[in-house]
Every structure is written in structure tokens, then in C-alpha cells.
Design a protein around this nucleic acid. Structure first.
Lengths: 128, 128
DNA sequence: TTACATGCAAACTGTTTGCAAATAT
DNA sequence: ATATTTGCAAACAGTTTGCATGTAA
């Protein structure tokens, strides 16, 4: 992986703003505003490469867009669908115990935990 | 919500095969094969309506496609990315404790837990 | 100089939507 | 009769890809 202009710039932006959760589109917009010439495709490529290299994590909150996390370590997230925002939940506040054995031939890769939050007092329809 | 031919048929198929996790595309194919005249759009609409009505759950495992669960109650899933399969993990095997308070004005909607599994012995690259 | 990275636009996937025809009450 | 539902195709969002151009080693 070569230290190209774009990759270095994006990495710099991410480090400066860490810890955070960012979408490709968001990072793309910020880069453009910062005068960094980069294409959306390259932002996608770069984020994927960083993630694959273990520099970032991926937070899955729904079908739709992907969120990338500057903190690749295992931790739990709040996700507010109404705002699209993701927050970290301090480590070791949440405890998960007694995970069962995975099926034969399989190992646990990682455990994703997302705490979905919503505004209080909404008429709480099941699908809300 | 009217008990139309399509909705009744799809509900029947889901009940017969429950418990299971199904994508819209899968259910659509099965319905066609079973001779039920239904369109993909209607399958999507119907699954969304059932979910919204609390009859089904939605399992989020990645940006991409949505899985619908005939069991709407809160439980934990295994997800095997290599096969795209989702399994239930028996209730009360996994225990989550000490969830923190949500931000002011927010309440916890639900907690999604996905245990990602993969094949053993793969050269374990971080992004694997 | 040579392999890799970038940018653009087009392809692609899964999902939703607009509207006319069909259907349930 | 009338409001809802269906089906189709087109729209749509987010993401990936093919290929010519540019760039790092």
C-alpha cells in the first residue's frame, strides 16, 4: 500500500478528528472542502483498505450505508436511527457473557453489539 | 391491513417454515415456485408491513440485504458471512449486563447482537 | 520504467416508488 | 362504490468496477 497523496491526506483527516464514525460520503465532502483533490471512489477504496488493514473498524447498523470507525477495537455502539448518529459506549460498561460454542468448523470472528436508541415518548409502535 | 391473497399466501409460507430467516428475494423465489402470483415489490411491502406490525423481526448483518426473522422477539444471531446464513442462538445463553443510560431524551429501542463466525484456520487477516 | 493508484462514468445490488389496473370491503 | 393493494418498470442510494491517465518506487 503506497503512501499516496490521497491516502496520506485522508489518513491525516481521520487521525485529526478521531475518535469518530464516518461514512464515505461524509469524508469525501470534508476532503473536498479541505481542498484535497480526491474522488468518491478513492475514498471508498481507501476506507476499505484501512479497514482491511486493521486501522479502522466497520460499524454495521443497517442496510444502507456503511460507517467506518477510527477505533478498530471491539466496542459497543449506540445508534440513533432518527439522526443517523453513532456513539461509542465506554468499554467494559457492557458485559457479554456465556457466548455458546460456534458450530463445528467455525470460530467466532467478532461480536457486534448495537444499542438502538430513539426519542422518548413516541407512540411506541413496534416498528418505530 | 387487508387479508389479500398475496399477504395470506406469504404469511402461510412463513408460518409453515418458521422459525427461519429469509430475504425478500428468497421468499419471492419460493412463492413463484409454489405457484403464488406475487411481485417482488409486494414481497418487500409485505415483509416490511409484517415487521412493522410486530409479526416479524429484522436482522441487520451488513450493508446489503435485509434479513427478516419469523421470530420477532429479542434474541442473538450467528452470522456466517461466507455462506450468508443466519442462525439463532438459544435465548438466555448470551447475557448482556450493565447497559449504560442512553443520552438524555433517548430511550433504548432494542439491542442487536450479531456473533460473526467464520471458518477455522484461515490466515486471520484483520479484515477477514 | 513499471507496477500500482486515481478519477470518472458506468455498472451493479438491494430496495422503494409512481401510477394504472385489480381487488377487498 | 371506494379505498386499498398489486404489479410493473423506472427511480433510487450506496457501493464497486473498468479502463485510461497519472504517480510512486
Amino acid at each position: 500500500m503506497r503512501p499516496t497523496r490521497q491516502r496520506l491526506s485522508l489518513l491525516g483527516m481521520l487521525i485529526e478528528t478521531a475518535p469518530r464514525h464516518v461514512t464515505a460520503e461524509e469524508l469525501f465532502q470534508e476532503a473536498r472542502q479541505a481542498g484535497i483533490p480526491v474522488s468518491l471512489a478513492t475514498v471508498y477504496n481507501t476506507l476499505n483498505q484501512f479497514t482491511q488493514a486493521g486501522l479502522m473498524g466497520e460499524v454495521v447498523v443497517g442496510s444502507g450505508q456503511s460507517y467506518f470507525d477510527t477505533d478498530p477495537s471491539s466496542h459497543v455502539h449506540y445508534f440513533d436511527k432518527s439522526t443517523g448518529e453513532i456513539y461509542d459506549i465506554p468499554r467494559d460498561v457492557v458485559t457479554i457473557t456465556d457466548l455458546p460454542e460456534p458450530p463445528p468448523g467455525k470460530v467466532i470472528d467478532r461480536v457486534d453489539v448495537v444499542v438502538r436508541i430513539k426519542n422518548v415518548c413516541k407512540a411506541d409502535a413496534p416498528g418505530d
